[in-house]
Write a protein that binds this DNA or RNA. Structure first.
Lengths: 118, 118
DNA sequence: ATTATATATGAACAATTATTCACACGTTTA
DNA sequence: TAAACGTGTGAATAATTGTTCATATATAAT
């Protein structure tokens, strides 16, 4: 990759293992789900219980369309799943490696970044 | 927290361990650094070597102001550090728990999300 | 059955924010 | 001086977020 860089700083490392552009894109799309304070909180909640939209709206202090919008995003990327029961639709975190990794990541990052957190 | 939710679905879990709003915000700010394809790639590179702006620009196929902008963001959040040597400024990943966690996270997520990746 | 109500989603819009570029400026070296 | 490298600023474009209004779906009431 850096065979023709403006400057040669002499490192021999040639990035053989560097993910491809599409791979960086795919990963950034997933991380994009955790960019937003609202979405990360919704995801965290859904990692701990199953909830319907109206309750999530209440917890978040937001309108249901806004919450629904975030839920759709999370679902599109396979981080959460839903089921309908009567009038309500229940959401919870998907049982996938990705979702579990993100969940762990969030809790670890809270630990590291917010030392006062108990 | 959910003592007064519109619906009571009967879970006893009361989110005692739920991070506070500020904590979700802080974490989302950090993940925001990995939201962008460009920034995540820059960060990955800087986890593997030290580089100057002009080389990063070349690798990314972007103008130096754009790269500089991303570098400033990453630096503001403590994910990378810089040193000047002559005319050039060299950047590399910070030696912090946060940066290492993010680095591991990126590589793991590439593995999981891009199975074809070698 | 028809109507009304509750829940959730979709679409259009506005407001905010992010990304990138081009240009100008500051710093360092030759 | 002059050239190379990097950064700050402003502008243009694109993306994100949340609101409002309308629509679907399911249950309950009359």
């Amino acid at each position: 990759m850096n065979d023709f860089l403006p400057h040669d700083h002499g490192h021999s490392f040639r990035f053989e293992n560097m993910p491809k552009t599409e791979e960086f894109l795919a990963v950034s799309e997933i991380f994009k789900q955790l960019c937003d304070q609202t979405r990360i909180k919704i995801f965290w909640i859904l990692c701990h219980c199953e909830e319907c939209v109206i309750n999530l709206s209440s917890m978040m202090g937001m309108s249901s369309p806004a919450v629904s919008h975030h839920l759709r995003q999370l679902k599109t990327y396979g981080l959460i799943v839903s089921r309908r029961d009567g009038k309500e639709v229940y959401y919870k975190a998907a049982d996938t490696e990705q979702a579990q990794l993100l969940h762990k990541m969030i809790e670890k990052m809270v630990e590291i970044s917010c030392p006062a957190a108990g």
